[in-house]
Design a protein around this nucleic acid. Sequence first.
DNA 1: CATCGAATTCCGCAACACGAAACCCGTGTT
DNA 2: AACACGGGTTTCGTGTTGCGGAATTCGATG
Lengths: 262, 262
Amino acid sequence: MPKTTENPYVVQPVMKALKVLELVARHGHEIALTAVSKELRIPKTTTFRYLQTLTAAKFLDHNRATDRYTLGPQMRAIARADASVSKIRTLARPAMTELMHEFNETVNLAVKGNGTIVYIDLIEANRSLRMQARIGDSHPMHSTALGKAILAFLPEAERQRQLDLPLTERTGRTLLEREEIERQLRQVARTGYATEMGENEDGAMCIGAPILDENGYPVAALSISAPLMRMPHSLAAKAGARLREIAAGISARLGSQPAAAG
Amino acid sequence: MPKTTENPYVVQPVMKALKVLELVARHGHEIALTAVSKELRIPKTTTFRYLQTLTAAKFLDHNRATDRYTLGPQMRAIARADASVSKIRTLARPAMTELMHEFNETVNLAVKGNGTIVYIDLIEANRSLRMQARIGDSHPMHSTALGKAILAFLPEAERQRQLDLPLTERTGRTLLEREEIERQLRQVARTGYATEMGENEDGAMCIGAPILDENGYPVAALSISAPLMRMPHSLAAKAGARLREIAAGISARLGSQPAAAG
DNA sequence: CATCGAATTCCGCAACACGAAACCCGTGTT
DNA sequence: AACACGGGTTTCGTGTTGCGGAATTCGATG
């Protein structure tokens, strides 16, 4: 009876906690428990629990000195990540179209997820036999050119943590040897682009270059994917150089300083 | 056993829903129910409910065509609001210090809340008798110079909605007549600053000017408050002009076009 | 038409969120 | 100093309501 609003699937505690989150966020500055409770007409105890939970999840911050709550780091991180992704997508789109026309192969854009890369955009070549990924798909880092491009530019500690995770074998050619992977990554760091030959999908290959943010952190990568048979070494090298160039251009517009070579 | 982590006050549904929110947000693009469920190891039914709830609260968006979820408008709105507030605070701070020294009275910065103004910063004059508000305090719109400055520049529809609400009487001098208030607001719109004399706090007065965002919307206001006895008309006029000037400068840096006079 | 995977709905159970009230603590008051 | 007050924290018994397994529908795909 209290809220037979419509959707029988809404979970009340969650809904109310989101209202609390919203109120605190929109308040613009520190707000105290009682104020939230009064404003939202939610009993003090319950409000207290929500504030605790939201704080524990870092969505809110609790100023112990004043006993008041503010927007937390998690919210800001999410907001930044979101803004960053849309910015990357916007910046990359024209270059992707251009690349697709230049090589007449599918061009992909992916961001670094947690241990994976996630496709956030792609422009398909207009050919009958073409490489298919779908926006939103996740793929392992170590078996894709996109992932390898990102891995190669990750800070050492994070790269190691990444490679410590179990590496899934996607095809018979997927690299699984730590040594071999690290050798390749050093190579990628030197040349500025990564290649992958049938390691993620049989018969397919991919060439990728990293996109770095203002801190030089590889937030995303750009790639061209094609059937192995259509991409001879010479062409791959040319594509790699182009990708590196274009990705660097996007990085620059994200505020990244051009990395000093060697 | 599952999560006796520490805080006995965290409510599980909320915590888990926040994890869902975070996952979807960080994913960078549309993600489907099953993917979320698998990734977070939360049963499908439960995940479904959280996604529904988050969507109902506009924290997520549900693409009916693909049956996938993305970050929703609410999150973006909160993020924008937060960024805007911190930007305003940062931009205003130096000017506020300057103003405080110039008049040797307390300078206040407030944003428009829902039917109220909320102090987000203030610089106190170093005098024994000084006006006191506290960061985070809310005051009514109609009884403060800050509020009147904002009201005067609100779009007509919103201003009317605002004035339709019951108007609390803070002191014997608080304006309560709709006619009188609207007359004053027109005056404020002309002169570019608002005054309030003992209408909010006995013996205190305040002069405020609006800060407009890139759409010309009054998101905040800047004010000088002082004991009535220390602020004769002539000084008040001078302060008003300065406030208008400085607030306009901040507005400009927020991307606002200077409003065409009359 | 059959099949599969995904999303939605159903339903019975007990976990656990709820909120009143008690408690604690720091502030300001007499 | 004692006191009341307001705000935050803790306790605790109750019954709501969130849970998740299973059944069902939906929508692609072959």
